[in-house]
Amino acid sequence: MHRVKESRPSTADRFRGSAATPIHSKRVTLPSGAQPPSPIRLLVELVDLSVSLGGVPVLSGCRLTLQPGESLGVAGPNGAGKSTLLAVVATFITPTGGSGAVLGTPLGSPRIPAVRAGIGWSGHLPALYPDLTLGENLALAARLGGHPASQGHTVLEQVGLGGAAGIRAERCSNGMRRRADLARLLIGSPRLVLLDEPDAGLDQDAAPIIDHLVRTTTRRGGGVLCVSHDAAKLSGWVDRVVEMRDGSIT
């Protein structure tokens, strides 16, 4: 690949250009014997799903579907249950009522841990180790996922943090940590990407990272579920937006 060394483009410029030249345009050769991911009709399907935490109902009667290649936003005020909904879809919380399936596997099934490697999740707080550098954090995530450590550095470059790979996470600004956390989702191309208030702590220049993440995921047949209190921002990133209030999707 030929790279022209010119003035360094801003993160925004980099991602504006990515629509025409997708990062994952390279043809991927599967190792011998490996099977391509089986086609799934619905990446997420929730039917009258309810969740109680400590006896307090948090979600009730939630219905939601997410198809391959689709991006969906869930907007709602604080305390509406958006993060809990995302935690259920991420398989962190088992529903107490109704039914649901993620990546074709019923929630609560013993097979659920096996589908986790196909899910990418970014929560309120970055999941980085403060004593490790950004590069070490991302390399660890890559290697644990069975990918080469160099992929950690590659995704850091994609979010404009290539030069900050050697800085410890605790010494980075909140925005840098947030970017690095989003970069983690670019490792291994998960089939389902879950974003919780993804722009929190990000400056304007970094916002296209979310746009890029959503587009690259949906373009390769994955799905994105994104929650935010800001419906206007959500509609700029995803195909459709539903509203959530008092634990129910309206």
Partner: peptide
């Protein structure tokens, strides 16, 4: 949570 999602 992030560790669990690596398939660890």
């Amino acid at each position: 949570r992030a560790l669990a999602l690596t398939g660890l």
